[in-house]
Write a protein that binds this DNA or RNA. Structure first.
Lengths: 132, 132
DNA sequence: GTAATCCTTCCAGTAACTGGAAGGTCAAGA
DNA sequence: TCTTGACCTTCCAGTTACTGGAAGGATTAC
């Protein structure tokens, strides 16, 4: 059994985050020591690592909860997991399009701005325009 | 002078948001009516619109505060504005790279997942792997 | 007059932590 | 045995930028 610090090191998550995951019921410790320390077993360590990776892939904590459920259920159809992944993919695509647009616009504005001592600035002008 | 509802309609922001901006001192009403209603003048409407656009470009509320300051100061050098814009641009680029990576990885995994009734799923396997 | 709409303030909640304070626990060294 | 330092506990507050809702006053239209 590992204390929370060990679990944190092993999973690559901050201690605070592991405690937070315990609080919200995402990955609970197997047990508590006599003095109240959280104690994690191997399988919980694996879950923590699992969650860290899924979070890094942009899955929300709630989605991680769902994935953990699927992960634990050895008989669940892979369809459900794929569905979650495809949803995430399309969210990522949407976000990328938005960013692309912002990047384009801002670059355009920054290029047009002399960036010198003079106050003329098309960036601010564009924010102040009456048109949308 | 416009009440908060008018200001909201004119600026394209939700009423709650306009009130919030007043609370945090981003765009304060010119005055209050006898009954305590917030009253906005033309110049405040312009600032609200300005903020809405800058927010749409991903500038944080604090950055908007800064931009408003520059916007109000008719003598500030455009260099300062450009600096903020360039910072934002590089943040956007970094974010896009991250998303690109996630998209690539997730697409790869989703492609490899059959998405059928069977439980075999490379997506979950990859989250559960011992390697990083 | 009254109903609908608008306005006010205040409180709480969102997502996912993070920081800090106050205090208990544990292992090692003098 | 005592103490030091590292570790653990809980609880509270703050972060970002709002958003929702409740309770209640103001204004406007009919």
């Amino acid at each position: 059994m590992f204390t929370i610090g060990d679990a944190a090191r092993a999973s690559g998550l901050p201690t605070k985050t592991v405690r937070y995951y315990a609080d919200v019921g995402l990955v609970k410790p197997d047990a508590r020591s006599q003095s109240g320390y959280r104690l994690y077993g191997q399988s919980e360590l694996r879950k923590l690592m699992f969650v860290r990776r899924a979070r890094a892939f942009g899955f929300s904590v709630d989605e991680c909860r769902e994935l953990l459920g699927l992960y634990e259920d050895r008989d669940r159809p892979s369809r459900e997991v794929k569905k979650l992944a495809l949803q995430r993919i399309s969210e990522i695509e949407k976000k990328m399009e938005e960013l692309q647009f912002l990047h384009h616009e801002l670059t355009h504005l920054a290029d047009a701005c002399r960036g010198d001592d003079r106050p003329d600035c098309p960036i601010l002008s564009s924010f102040a325009e009456d048109t949308d």
